[in-house]
């Protein structure tokens, strides 16, 4: 068993079919590649063929997946039959900084944990609150409140065999001034950390320093590259900065950006990291192409350093 197993964070938009029984006829209707991106059977086969044994789903996938498969268990079985397991689900802990939102934030977190358990997953990577714009800057009390919510969700998750990993976006109300403060305020036994290599670098953390400082808290990764590290406040705190107006990409496939990912892998080896690593392709125009490019880079550049 390798030290690192690879998954994909699900960035596929709605996939309307489980499996297309009349693939050739469907193709001939308009002779485009739509058929190749319309059923989970194909999507999961692409993953398995490229050596990604896990999939991390997103909560916004549920509205389509559940009616299509009937239950989380049915989707998990369908994926497992094709060599892919559901490793967890992303969660956005909306308004967890707000004192009057404690019960709602904890309830939503627990429900998400319950859903993950039904999928057979073990990770809930959790964005600690919403965008900075319209919310930040957070007071010290609000950061403390956010930590209380994370601890409470983390306690429930731990009791159910799920690890929650704080996952910071570069545009969140938890941001460079209070990023580490939040981590320090949470209970290490209950709340872990998912390093999104690009997001924290854009936010202003040095990737290698951050991993060295918090390696014992790291439960998993969202691995992706960026050519846009250390963005200024004016970008991170702007309204809706994730999708740029002009099509500029924040995120690139590993090796196509400027992060020292080989350096990260040397640190992973030094600290003996073991677990799942999700690759993220948000912003890619071609998820299948991104998956293949990533597999090549993993096999030729990163895995020779530490596997």
């Amino acid at each position: 068993m390798p030290n690192i197993r690879y998954a994909n964070m699900c960035h596929w938009k709605a996939i309307p079919y489980r499996q297309i029984p009349n693939f050739r006829d469907f193709y001939y209707e308009d002779k485009t590649n739509t058929a190749y991106y319309s059923d989970w059977d194909s999507i999961l086969k692409y993953q398995a063929a490229l050596g990604f044994e896990g999939i991390e789903i997103a909560p916004w996938d549920l509205a389509d997946i559940l009616p299509l498969f009937g239950s989380p268990e049915a989707f998990a079985d369908f994926a497992r039959e094709r060599g892919v397991e559901v490793i967890g689900m992303f969660h956005g802990a909306h308004a967890s900084h707000a004192a009057d939102h404690f019960d709602e934030a904890v309830r939503a977190g627990r429900e998400a944990v319950d859903t993950i358990v039904r999928f057979g997953g073990t990770h809930m990577n959790t964005c600690p609150t919403q965008n900075y714009f319209g919310t930040g800057p957070l007071s010290r009390e609000e950061v403390q409140h956010c930590a209380r919510v994370m601890n409470e969700i983390g306690r429930y998750a731990t009791d159910h065999g799920v690890k929650i990993g704080l996952h910071n976006e570069f545009f969140c109300a938890i941001n460079l001034p209070n990023h580490r403060e939040l981590i320090e305020l949470t209970d290490p036994a209950l709340v872990h950390y998912c390093i999104d290599t690009a997001q924290i670098s854009i936010m202003g953390e040095d990737l290698l320093t951050f991993y060295s400082d918090y390696h014992d808290r790291i439960s998993t990764f969202h691995l992706k590259d960026t050519a846009s590290a250390r963005q200024p406040d004016s970008v991170r705190y702007a309204q809706d900065p994730e999708i740029t107006d002009d099509g500029t990409r924040w995120f690139w496939e590993p090796g196509l950006g400027e992060l020292d990912l080989p350096g990260l892998y040397r640190l992973l080896k030094e600290h003996g990291f073991q677990g799942w690593m999700s690759i993220e392709y948000d912003g890619s125009p071609d998820l299948l192409g991104s998956m293949a490019l990533t597999r090549y880079h993993l096999d030729k550049v990163l895995r020779p350093i530490y596997d």
Partner: peptide, 8 residues
């Protein structure tokens, strides 16, 4: 809403 290349 549905997946296709270049949808992003």
């Amino acid at each position: 809403h549905y997946q296709e290349p270049n949808r992003n």
